[in-house]
């Protein structure tokens, strides 16, 4: 029997725009969602494969692994979503829906759209059910407030943000006072541990990456799940086979060419989230398996580099996480910028 890895890992996923390609750009789209059949719902290219591979690799490492979904959709559509997850073959340990009906009954219509209070309390509540040493990787999108919610949660958990500072920040966002109190109580129960390794934000709206600079290097804005997979390989949550599998899915489902994929890999590296060395290794492996293109000359050079690496102990490669040197986040200022961005456009705050 495999010895359990000392640190269990939890992958927490937002659902709409992160897992599902939900269209709610217009009122018409919004109305259509409850009537969609499970088979009509479309996933973001590569996401199903990524979740499957994350589980496989964690199990292979002997790690306890859990996958949770948090949805802002009402429980009334839970059946369709659960059926969709079953159709995809996505294994998960829990899914939370937002009780919109309750807000309507209480006349709190503002809470129907407000997600920060809802998601933050769900994250904090669930954390108390995990082992103390559990590591977390969070996945969201750039559509609404996932970067703020996840960063607040990660900093509360790490003890970088005091529970006492929370009300002021949440009030600025316009969170329901009841939820603010609940979040504060839950935050006080946390045992401080820097458990959130990374926050992956899927750039569904193609937001300019600069927008996410104030969140620090812990947050990775990724244009597609191949970019996320490359970073997860670097952080040892995936192996090469896993990355290759995600690459194939992204190509197939996203209709991308091999050259598109190579450009995407280069982009995440240029933006500083992927080490150059990791990029080279991945390029080589993907080229070997025919996923990425390579000229004969380039293949020869890559083969030569790989040979040198294999025969040199000092440079033997194993992916190593780039520890994010997370600095302090000025949440009050960040909230102000973020609210302007959500209500206006995707321009970069100055």
């Amino acid at each position: 029997m495999a010895t359990l890895h000392p640190t269990p890992v939890v992958f927490r996923w937002d659902l709409d725009k992160t897992y599902l390609r939900s269209e709610f750009d217009s009122f018409r789209d919004l109305v259509k969602i409850p009537f969609e059949k499970p088979e009509d719902k479309v996933t973001v290219p590569g996401v199903v494969t990524l979740i499957r591979q994350l589980r496989r690799v964690a199990r292979q490492q002997g790690r306890e692994v859990r996958v949770f979904f948090i949805s802002a959709s009402p429980p009334q559509i839970a059946k369709a979503i659960k059926e969709k997850l079953a159709l995809d073959g996505t294994e998960y340990d829990g899914i939370t829906f937002k009780n919109q009906l309750q807000h309507i009954m209480r006349g709190r219509f503002r809470n129907l759209r407000e997600q920060v209070g809802y998601k933050l309390t769900v994250l904090l509540r669930q954390r108390n059910e995990f082992p103390d040493n559990a590591r977390e990787v969070l996945f969201g999108d750039d559509w609404e407030s996932d970067p703020i919610i996840y960063s607040l949660y990660a900093d509360l958990l790490a003890g970088r943000l005091a529970a006492g500072d929370l009300p002021n920040i949440l009030q600025r966002i316009g969170v329901d006072p009841e939820l603010i109190d609940e979040a504060q109580v839950l935050a006080r129960k946390l045992r401080p541990v820097a458990a959130v390794e990374r926050i992956y934000i899927h750039l569904e709206r193609l937001s300019p990456p600069k927008v996410f600079e104030p969140f620090g290097p812990r947050l990775v804005p990724a244009f597609d799940y191949f970019q996320s997979a490359a970073c997860l390989y670097q952080d040892q949550h995936l192996d090469v086979d896993g990355v290759v599998d995600v690459a194939h899915s992204v190509m197939l489902e996203g209709q991308l060419s091999a050259r598109n994929l190579a450009n995407s890999l280069a982009d995440i590296c240029r933006r500083g989230y992927l080490h150059q060395r990791v990029r080279e290794v991945l390029e080589w492996e993907l080229m070997q398996r025919g996923v990425l293109p390579g000229s004969r000359q380039r293949r020869f050079l890559q083969r030569l580099q790989a040979w040198v690496r294999r025969h040199s102990r000092r440079t033997a490669f194993s992916p190593r996480p780039m520890p994010p040197h997370q600095g302090e986040i000025d949440y009050l200022q960040l909230v102000q910028h973020w609210q302007q961005r959500v209500t206006t456009d995707t321009s970069v705050p100055t």
Binding site: L206, S207, P208, P209, K210, E213, F223, D224, Q227, L256, R259, N260, L261, A262, N263, S264, A266, D267, I268, R270, R271, T346, V348
Partner: peptide
Amino acid sequence: IEVVLVGDEKQIQSNLDRVQYRPERIEV
């Protein structure tokens, strides 16, 4: 259309970071 932007990589990326773009169609 696929575009290859030729020039100082750092300057190009720092300008790309400020705008919306599709990375799969841009090589630097």
